[in-house]
Design a protein around this nucleic acid. Structure first.
Lengths: 330, 330
DNA sequence: TAATTTGTTCGTTGCACCAACATACTAATT
DNA sequence: AATTAGTATGTTGGTGCAACGAACAAATTA
């Protein structure tokens, strides 16, 4: 049996504090009386909790509730200047950094292309430079940074703060949290890109009302973030959402996935599979405008080029997309 | 957002009390000192919690730990006479009732065949009679009954205490909890049969170490109980484990399931599917001993008869079982 | 002025914690 | 065999902290 911490008074306080903060965050503005009614905590308890949140600079009073009989309520909301957060999206061929306020409003951002075939340190340093620029810009405006959150395109060890393996970058055991916290002196958190996207959809997006859903992240590969009972489900080893490598074909396929197995979903529906489909078609019959486009624009075969051909009505391009779409849907 | 109860001291006490009781249940015998070490609660807190559990008659002291240096520990275990529980398994064509002690040891049981095609009230009354016999037998031995738990072969509404629908019994909205609690004056709990079996495997059986597993319940139909993160997962509507009606065939099948859909797993792998496979084979070629067995024993086609034929080496019977097994495994 | 709703004050209750202590045994020494 | 030291167990009484409850002050409407 897994040993949870024993319950004590500090736990009670932290739970109630957190609950009140969440309520103000999601339903502001709220009065102390409303909070007491919602939480069923005593009025005096709510007052004490709110006092502490105000003391911490997380919440502030914002006018009062006019109209209605009785004493007007003092309304509370999250203090928009409670602090700022840095978000880092570490992609396969790009890096994106944003600064937000505590409510998630983006107030600074920069995105740069990156070379995934180059040196690992080079790409990390490129990111660190952008992050330092963000911090410098923030300091000038008097921001106080509460922490840094980043996403990585691979499996992640939350406790150790490392990216265990990225199939598309071919990187192993990168200690992202260590690197970024030493460089910025901030609290750093890491999460898998698809999981982070699923959390975002649940908090702010389409899945706000959904307690149970699967977020499918189709990029270079196929990732997934699985929510069950309103929480991200990681499974026994923590890779429950890695749906791209589920075998979807009953008969084993010819294509070996870069993960080593055969028949992975990702093999049938990712970007590379589309390119492969087009190439296979071109080898059989050549009634396509794609070779012409390649020659004209001096470009290698790639998704933008195939899309161009499909838009122009090219049968082979359209059918390749359709096949991949079918595999995606299966 | 779902409103949980606010945390207060009563919650803390209940949590710690429950944790200590669980530990004694799963790892007995344990001393107070060991409990303090495991839970990281203070020794005096553990003493207070244990006192309360002893006061409630749930736990008792059982000798002391000889050998080893220092004061010998007073060992604690669940009091085997803390109380008794009635378990009712409401099957499709049988009813089974058992009385256990608090540790789950069966000390009384009776099982009767039932007629699923007959009247609903008749089958329920048949069960009530057995339950009353069990209670009477228990009362004579001085048992105190803590509650009654029952399983039902269909989807269940835990809050209302009803069986919503049983595909095999063709019953709708049966208020089992109401019926049994009014009749016995006990606390009654209901659960789906497959879910209950999954819980049992997790508590006492093969899945004791598993936090994440699927229990497949192959009887008249196919049910399932799904554990995630060490807890039974019910899904949004509470039927997450109902895997028998997942479509497993890519192309829609001819066979309409009694649930109304096509291609359900259950359709390919349940008992009736085996009978159907045999019948289909007999219509094409008749080199099977099954018709002879039917005539000899004056029995309708059924699983026992097909098994008999398979044991005798009958090709058609064996192949029918094999096909169903393949569908089961898929 | 009465009624109503909001939010605060202050004393109470219940819980876990801590330090000191009593207890009951083993192990080493005389 | 008797004595003494050492060690682990479990209890006692005092403390701090969290929520609660009742009374009250505050601010408005009818």
């Amino acid at each position: 049996m897994i040993q949870k911490h024993p319950a004590d008074q500090a736990f009670v306080r932290a739970t109630n504090l957190s609950q009140v903060l969440r309520l103000i965050h999601s339903q502001s503005p709220l009065s102390r009386a409303q909070l007491a009614a919602i939480t069923r905590l005593n009025k005096s308890t709510v007052s004490s909790l709110v006092d502490e949140l105000i003391e911490l600079g997380l919440v502030h009073e914002t006018g009062s509730n006019i109209g209605g009989t009785g004493r007007p309520a003092t309304l509370l909301e999250i203090d928009p200047q409670a602090g700022n957060i840095i978000g880092v999206e570490f992609g396969v061929d790009f890096v994106s950094v944003a600064v937000t306020d505590i409510l998630g409003n983006i107030i600074w951002r920069r995105r740069e292309d990156a070379d995934p075939t180059g040196d690992q340190d080079k790409m990390i340093n490129q990111t660190l430079v952008i992050v330092k620029d963000a911090i410098a810009a923030g300091k000038r405006k008097g921001y106080k940074f509460l922490g840094l959150g980043m996403t990585a395109p691979g499996t992640v060890d939350l406790k150790k703060g490392t990216m265990i393996f990225s199939p598309n970058l071919h990187w192993h055991n990168v200690p992202f949290v260590k690197i970024f916290s030493e460089s910025t002196k901030l609290k750093v958190f890491i999460e898998n890109d698809a999981n982070a996207a699923a959390i975002a959809e649940h908090s702010f997006g389409t899945a706000r009302q959904c307690e149970d859903f699967l977020f499918v992240f189709a990029g270079v590969g196929i990732g997934g973030g699985l929510f069950l009972n309103g929480k991200l489900y990681r499974g026994k080893n923590g890779y429950a959402g890695e749906i791209g490598h589920s075998p979807i074909m009953a008969e084993p396929s010819q294509n070996v996935c870069h993960c080593g197995n055969r028949g992975c979903w990702e093999t049938y529906a990712n970007q590379y599979s589309i390119i492969q489909r087009v190439q296979a078609r071109l080898e059989v019959r050549r009634s396509s405008i794609i070779p012409k486009l390649m020659a004209e624009q001096n470009l290698p075969m790639g998704i933008p080029l195939i899309k161009q051909a499909a838009d122009a009505g090219d049968r082979e391009a359209i059918d390749s997309f359709r096949e991949a779409g079918l595999a995606m849907g299966q």
